[in-house]
Amino acid sequence: MESLEPPSAGHAEVRIVAASPEVARRVAEVLRRCFDATEQRSYPAGAEGGTRLHLTVDTTHAAEPARSWLETSRASADRSRPSDQA
């Protein structure tokens, strides 16, 4: 049974579900290029086949381009939304 507790501060649990193990591995590889991550854990993805990968990423140790994206998203969250007035 999977834990329902949230990961520690600065970390995110990522679940990837794909039709093939190769596709899931490619997505995990991209995440590992952007963030420090744990080794992926692989599971079957239900009766229809497919693969489910789990990994934990550390967002406090982001590499480029994730660092740029995180900084941009933090800055936009601090700004209020523009009004719909013309």
Rank of each mutant, 00 (worst) to 15 (best):
L4Y: 07
C34L: 10
D78A: 15
P6N: 08
S83E: 11
R25V: 05
V57F: 00
I16L: 03
T60A: 14
S73D: 12
L55W: 00
A37W: 00
P21W: 02
E22H: 13
Q40R: 15
R25L: 11
S20G: 08
S42T: 06
L70V: 04
A28E: 02
T56N: 06
M1C: 08
Y43G: 03
A63R: 15
R81G: 04
A62I: 06
S42Y: 01
R41E: 15
S68G: 10
T59P: 05
V14E: 02
H61D: 13
R33E: 10
A63S: 12
H11E: 14
T59N: 04
G46E: 05
D84L: 14
D78F: 09
R52W: 01
A37D: 01
E29K: 15
R41G: 05
S80A: 12
A12I: 06
D84H: 07
R15C: 09
A86E: 13
S68V: 11
A18L: 06
Q85A: 10
E2L: 11
S68M: 11
S83I: 09
R81A: 11
S3G: 10
A62L: 02
S20T: 15
T59H: 05
P82L: 10
E29Y: 15
E2Y: 13
H11K: 09
Q40A: 13
T51S: 04
R15A: 09
V14Q: 02
E13C: 05
Q85W: 13
E71P: 03
E64N: 13
P65T: 06
E5T: 09
S42K: 00
S3L: 14
V27Q: 04
R32T: 01
P82T: 05
P21V: 04
C34V: 09
A47H: 10
P7W: 02
L70P: 03
P44H: 05
S8L: 11
E22N: 12
D78P: 00
F35W: 06
R15G: 08
V30S: 13
A45W: 00
V14N: 05
V17I: 12
C34H: 07
P44R: 02
A66L: 08
S42I: 03
R32Y: 01
R41Q: 15
P44G: 00
S20Y: 09
R26G: 06
